[in-house]
């Protein structure tokens, strides 16, 4: 789907976040020359289409002590991936969970699940928990531990179009 001009302006205005004031939608609407009702209607529509997933806080894992992250990868039988992927994604400590293409010969893995924890032992325990759920349906797995953040930025929408 493509975005209308109003929606693009709304997204651009909200990329940095929502103002922390009692009536935040009214405040944003005023800067855009829209009514609060119109802004709320567009936000509701963008939630409906999935352009906005939710309006919420993004916590900083590091400042909350969750300084380790591991990208666990699994070679899961194709006919079970939908069922098992849904189960792994539902785990409270998994932040991202995707099926991605295998890339033979050196990359047999098709399920990616990111786990976070306060130390190496904690992420190892979480990997073990995933392994228990997948059982024999996973033929191989690995965990790629992050050693350094090289870049981290939010979504930036271009100015064109």
């Amino acid at each position: 789907m493509t975005l209308g001009t109003t929606d693009r302006e709304i997204i651009r205005a909200l990329q940095g976040g929502l103002p922390l004031v009692p009536a935040p939608y009214k405040a944003v609407a005023e800067t855009l020359g829209l009514s609060e009702a119109r802004l709320v209607q567009r936000l509701a529509a963008m939630k409906e289409t999935g352009v906005i997933r939710r309006i919420a806080a993004a916590p900083n894992h590091y400042r909350l002590g969750m300084i380790e992250n591991g990208m666990t990868v699994w070679d899961v039988e194709d006919d079970r991936i939908a069922e098992l992927g849904a189960q792994i994604g539902a785990l409270s400590f998994v932040t991202h969970c995707y099926e991605r293409p295998r890339a033979p010969p050196d990359w047999p893995f098709n399920l990616f699940a990111m786990v976070h924890g306060s130390d190496k032992n904690e992420i190892a325990a979480k990997r073990a928990e995933i392994r228990t759920i997948l059982g024999a349906a996973s033929r191989a797995d690995d965990m790629l531990v992050s050693t350094r953040i090289l870049k981290k930025t939010g979504l930036r929408l271009g100015q064109k179009r």
Binding site: M1, Q15, G17, M46, V51, I52, R53, P59, R63
Partner: peptide
């Protein structure tokens, strides 16, 4: 810095 930001989570894929 406990929160990185507060606001909408956008899905770039849903925007095309």
């Amino acid at each position: 810095g406990v929160l990185t930001r507060f606001g909408p989570f956008f899905d770039a894929a849903a925007m095309g």
